[in-house]
Simulated assay, not measured.
Amino acid sequence: MDLSQEFWDNRYQSNDIGWDLGVVSPPLKAYFDQLINKELKILIPGGGNSYDAEYLFNKGFKNIFVVDLSKTALDNLKARAPDFPSSNLILNNFFDLNMTFDLIIEQTFFCAIDPSLRSDYAKKASEILNSKGNVSGLLFDAVLNTTHPPFGGSKTEYLGYFKPFFEIKIMDEAYNSIKPRAGRELFFIIQKKG
């Protein structure tokens, strides 16, 4: 399975990005709207066109970082939000990051990586979070594809990956998903143990 930098950049160049809503998803928008601390250091891994980062930036959050393998996707964000700091757009692999954050926003990245890396994702997320840091966002709660992203899964499966490293604050069906994803998304907040 080819999930290389070239693979992802080609998907963005050819606009083969069916997961891309073109706006921040309603569950994440509702979550962002209740965040108070605008000093939070936030990471959006596999952020793609990153409407989430743009939304947060426009709300006054200035410490937002997006990491993606696609230069095209990062360029798309910069074109829409020219004042977004270029130094916070990281062309790299999430697993190679060597920074720490207060909050990781999950939206379509977890389901885009090879499922064999899911335990590694949980471990890496805990390593790059500050004490009591959170991972928050959405996970697909559905059987999807087995040979290419997006890869689905279930709450039971996800708990197995996250429980060794995180306290599960919430992991329930999202009540405000877009219609095509209704009943197929989990909204979750997990907090780093220790």
Rank of each mutant, 00 (worst) to 15 (best):
Y31R: 15
Y55M: 10
K62A: 14
L28E: 04
F94P: 11
W8A: 06
E185Y: 04
L103E: 03
P150Y: 00
F57D: 03
K169G: 07
G47E: 13
W8F: 07
T147Q: 05
E185P: 08
K124G: 03
A122Y: 03
C111L: 00
G160H: 13
P82Q: 12
A73T: 10
T147N: 14
G153A: 05
P115K: 00
S86T: 12
D2A: 04
L40N: 06
E54M: 14
Q107F: 00
A73I: 02
L77I: 03
Y121I: 09
F94G: 12
I128W: 02
T146E: 15
K163V: 12
S131Q: 06
E127A: 14
W19C: 05
N134S: 12
S25L: 13
H148D: 11
L77Q: 11
T100S: 14
P115V: 09
F109M: 10
D172G: 10
Q13E: 12
K192D: 05
A112E: 10
A81H: 01
L159R: 06
T146F: 02
G137K: 09
P180F: 08
E127K: 13
W19L: 05
P45E: 09
S4C: 03
K29E: 08
N58E: 14
V66A: 07
K41I: 10
D20Y: 08
Y175V: 12
G152W: 01
S87N: 15
M171Q: 04
L186Q: 07
I36D: 14
L35M: 13
E54C: 09
M1P: 08
D33V: 09
K38R: 11
F101A: 05
F101C: 06
N37M: 07
F109P: 02
E39C: 11
G22C: 12
F84H: 08
D141A: 03
T100R: 05
N88Q: 14
I170M: 08
F95Y: 06
P85D: 07
K71Y: 00
N76P: 00
G18N: 05
G152F: 00
G18F: 00
D141M: 01
S25W: 05
D33S: 14
N76H: 07
N92F: 01
F187W: 01
I36H: 09
G46Q: 11
E39D: 15
M99L: 15
K179F: 02
N92R: 13
